[in-house]
Amino acid sequence: MTATLDAGPAGPASIALAPETMATAPKAARTGIVIDASIDVSADFLADPDVAVIPIPIRIGGSTYIDQHDPEASARYMRENGNGEGVAGQSIPLDAAQMRNFFIERFALDYDSVYCLTITSTRSPIHDACSEGSSLALAHIRGLRQVADMRRPFQFRVIDTRNMFAGSGIAAMALRDMLAAQMSPKDVRAELLRIVDSTYTYYIPDDLGYARTRSRVRGDRSIKLASVVLGSALAIKPIIRGYQGDTHPVSKYRGRAQSWGKLFKFAARRVAEGQLHTPHVIVSYAGAMGELHATPELGELRQACERAGVSLHVLQMSITGMMNIGPGGLTLAYSGPVPNEAP
């Protein structure tokens, strides 16, 4: 779902604009991208000056972590919660009023168009808070732009990616490609929605008990109690597919090595078919990255991507993702046609 806000020159004239803010008013139109911090994207994406990240505070016991794709914060989280302490964690996303302030401060005068991408609204309140916050910001942004004599319309689109973590990152990175190619706003919207509707995210939790507890907090019932009891005894690792806001298990294997290997080989076949809707595959991991890079099948996926001209992004999972999936959890995502097989 998308929410589009348009602000013309009309608006309240009583809003005063600070002199230092007026001095920074831009001369050319710019388009910004804002993502919530749980979305897994590459470092070069985050380094783009037109990208902003909505931080998500995480509270575990007496400790607070700010999820905003900061490597030091992620390392601290893993160091202090490597034994599953995050199962009792609580995310405290910004509410609508805080979103309003964030949007005004970051985008009101420096941009004419903004795309805000969030993880699926079926598992998180962030999308609703962003939608409400952008609506609250609109009147104030109109006033600021009038005082700055900015007559160009202002557009703010809130996009529900209908996925989580690596899956939401696919839409974000595809959007950046479209903006770099200077596609028209109409074409961007149509293509972005096509990608959102065709993105598949595969989750492999390492600890089924942890993952079930956390998933139920999000309203996800894809991991059953019987599966946890049996899976823990036999070291079963399920592969769970996320698609269009829903999740369900599609296969299961004995041990991490087998489940990871099957998933990476499956993804390599999808890449080799040459039908991906955007040239990106994202893998995010809630653990030491050396463990992931040592997997032989990941090397096979990397080679398949190189041959096909697809970018493979192997990333540290966001703190929010690590808290929800658990230590050792993995996600992989791409956008493409309906798969003809399960991993």
Rank of each mutant, 00 (worst) to 15 (best):
D110T: 11
G167T: 00
K265G: 10
S184C: 08
Y200F: 12
G219I: 07
E300K: 07
F156A: 03
I239L: 15
G290Y: 04
M78T: 05
E291F: 09
I325S: 15
S91V: 10
S215F: 15
H140T: 12
E85W: 02
G61Y: 12
I141C: 00
L46I: 14
D207F: 02
V158G: 01
N81C: 15
D197M: 10
A342V: 09
A18I: 02
G255E: 02
D197Y: 14
D112I: 10
L312T: 09
D44Q: 14
Y115N: 08
A272N: 09
L312W: 08
P327K: 15
P153N: 08
A13C: 07
L94P: 00
A288P: 07
R256V: 02
G32L: 03
T201N: 10
D48L: 13
R106A: 00
A174E: 00
H313G: 03
L276R: 06
L298Y: 08
G62I: 01
G290Q: 15
V147C: 02
R30T: 01
R152V: 01
R218T: 11
P185Y: 10
M322C: 07
S134A: 15
R157L: 07
H293P: 02
T4M: 14
A226R: 07
M178Y: 12
Y210P: 01
A73D: 08
I159K: 07
E306Y: 07
L234N: 11
A88M: 12
G8L: 10
K186T: 04
S14F: 13
R214I: 02
A308R: 03
P9G: 06
Y285A: 15
Y334E: 00
A180S: 09
Q146G: 04
T24K: 13
I236P: 00
H69F: 08
M173N: 00
P238D: 01
H313I: 10
G261Q: 04
Y210V: 07
K252P: 03
Q90M: 11
G133K: 01
A288Y: 03
I319R: 01
A304T: 03
P55F: 06
S135V: 02
Y202F: 04
P26V: 11
A37H: 09
V228E: 13
H277T: 00
H69A: 11
K237M: 12
R221N: 15
T24M: 12
Q303N: 11
G326L: 05
Q275P: 13
T278A: 09
V310I: 14
K224C: 05
L109E: 04
M1L: 11
R157S: 14
Q155E: 11
L225F: 10
S91F: 10
Q90A: 06
V229H: 01
Y65A: 03
R241V: 07
P9Y: 12
G299W: 09
P19Y: 11
F103E: 00
S215D: 06
S259D: 05
R302S: 10
I223C: 00
A304Y: 01
S198F: 06
T64Q: 12
G261R: 01
S113A: 14
N83C: 14
M164K: 13
L298T: 03
D207E: 12
G287A: 09
M183T: 03
P93Q: 15
G8R: 11
V228S: 08
